[in-house]
Design a protein around this nucleic acid. Structure first.
Length: 415
DNA sequence: TCTGGGGTCCTAGGACCC
DNA sequence: TCTGGGGTCCTAGGACCC
């Protein structure tokens, strides 16, 4: 008889994922300030300019790594509303970083190279590194393109050195296949594993055991807890709570009285490193949405035609997303962001499920009529929620629940 | 010329039903 | 004669995450 396995959960975080993927294609950018964000792909532009400059040779995608530096677009002179998605360390040196407006970044580091985001490429590498992990440890939870939780508990070798041996194996397998590095934290649960993966970046491994709570976790800022954002942190600070250790010293009663039942209990457990959440290997989407920030603020009346066309396009995109992924939904919503950055949402639940662009457009149009439209608009979004798999929808007792009773009646009502 | 896009979950009030 | 109480769905807003 052997002892039951000890629960070991890993959190794996790819290092500077987008930037690293770009460097695989453009190794000539290594060590330079590079910013990723905004606009569209420029490959064709880059290759086109290369072909114009060197007409004797035929340039293809395989030559991306040979494109001279002066062919790359620079941040200098950038106009538009894009933000930085990722910046290389060389660029961060100039004070630019994630979520910063590109125009502001252009002032700080005009010479930085600007690469547009290429989600297709990132998704490709995302699937690759996840497939590699799955060969070794099948219980994986997706946390976006560049992060996963992995349950080491029942993986052969998952207990050795607290998980370090398996973590090292996975790191090496990912690097050998993709050339990308990652950081891994292994701990008794997801909460601690997530914190641990940050301890040793990049390309690091950290092991956290039950007994490490006081030494490794309590000195950290509360903000390091996944789920404590700027607002909660500010509230905690206002009560003199800055570290997780200080949070742990508050009584559960006080936390519940100050933050409410649920949050109070959660804060207490988090501070004591307790987290029973399982690693969830699959989940169904709850909603799908599309939104767009305009190049300039638009007015509901003055720019009605332009706004209407954009609105219709968003509905068509959501409908296409739903259909492509095989879902229908019945709660249709809109989101407006005004020039002062305030946000308003309106939604409406239909008596049937749909993935039809016209039905979505009609319901979203009704929502829009209930929204205040005096201020100029910066962003418009369309959302479909209360999703159901299209296959499941067919099994509903009342088949009309999946169809508009009279689709034509829903098209642009009295519009 | 600050501040993207796509998600999840929670709260809280009101409607409505039993 | 005056007022219960739970459960669920819907809507709006907000915090947070990647």
């Amino acid at each position: 008889m052997s002892a039951p396995p000890i629960r070991r959960i890993a959190h794996l975080d790819m290092d500077a994922f987008y930037a690293s993927v770009e460097l695989l294609r453009y190794p000539q950018l290594k060590g330079l300030p590079v910013v990723i964000g905004g606009g569209r792909r420029r490959e064709d532009d880059l290759l086109g300019r290369l072909a114009a400059a060197y007409p004797d040779k035929e340039w293809t995608q395989d030559d991306l790594g040979a494109i001279p530096l002066d062919f790359f677009p620079r941040l200098s002179g950038y106009t538009g509303r894009g933000v930085i998605t990722t910046a290389t360390y060389a660029a961060r040196h100039f004070g630019v970083g994630s979520a910063m407006g590109l125009m502001k970044a252009a002032k700080l580091c005009p010479q930085a190279i600007l690469l547009p985001v290429d989600f297709a490429q990132y998704r490709h590498y995302s699937q690759r590194f996840k497939a590699i992990i799955a060969e070794v440890a099948p219980v994986i939870e997706n946390r976006g393109v560049d992060e996963v939780y992995i349950d080491f508990t029942n993986v052969p070798g998952g207990q050795r050195e607290g998980g370090r041996v398996l973590a090292r194996l996975i790191q090496k397998a990912i690097f050998d296949d993709t050339g990308l590095t990652c950081s891994v934290g292994v701990a008794p649960n997801k909460l601690l594993a997530k914190m641990a993966s940050e301890f040793n970046k990049p390309n690091g491994i950290s092991i956290v055991l039950e007994d490490d709570l006081q030494g490794l976790i309590w000195p950290l800022a509360c903000r390091k807890i996944n789920g404590i954002g700027p607002k909660s942190d500010e509230k905690l600070q206002s009560h003199g709570i800055h570290t997780i250790g200080q949070l742990a010293q508050r009584s559960p009663d006080w936390l519940v009285a100050t933050f409410g039942n649920k949050t109070g209990a959660w804060l207490h457990n988090a501070a004591w490193g307790r987290d029973e959440r399982p690693v969830v290997t699959s989940s169904e989407p709850v909603s799908m949405s599309r939104e767009t920030t305009f190049e300039r603020d638009l007015h509901a009346v003055r720019d009605r035609a332009e706004l209407g066309a954009l609105f219709t396009r968003l509905c068509e995109q959501v409908a296409a997303d739903l259909q492509r992924k095989g879902y229908v939904g019945k709660t249709i919503g809109i989101k407006l962001r005004f020039d002062d950055f305030s946000i308003v949402t309106r939604d409406h639940t239909l008596p049937y499920y749909t993935a039809d662009a016209a039905a979505i457009r009609a319901a979203a149009g009704q929502c829009l009529k209930r929204a205040p439209l005096a201020k100029r608009l910066r962003l418009l979004g369309v959302r479909v929620g209360s999703l159901l798999g299209a296959q499941d929808a067919k099994l509903l007792s009342n088949p009309t629940e999946t169809l508009p009773h009279d689709p034509n009646a829903l098209l642009f009502p009295d519009d």
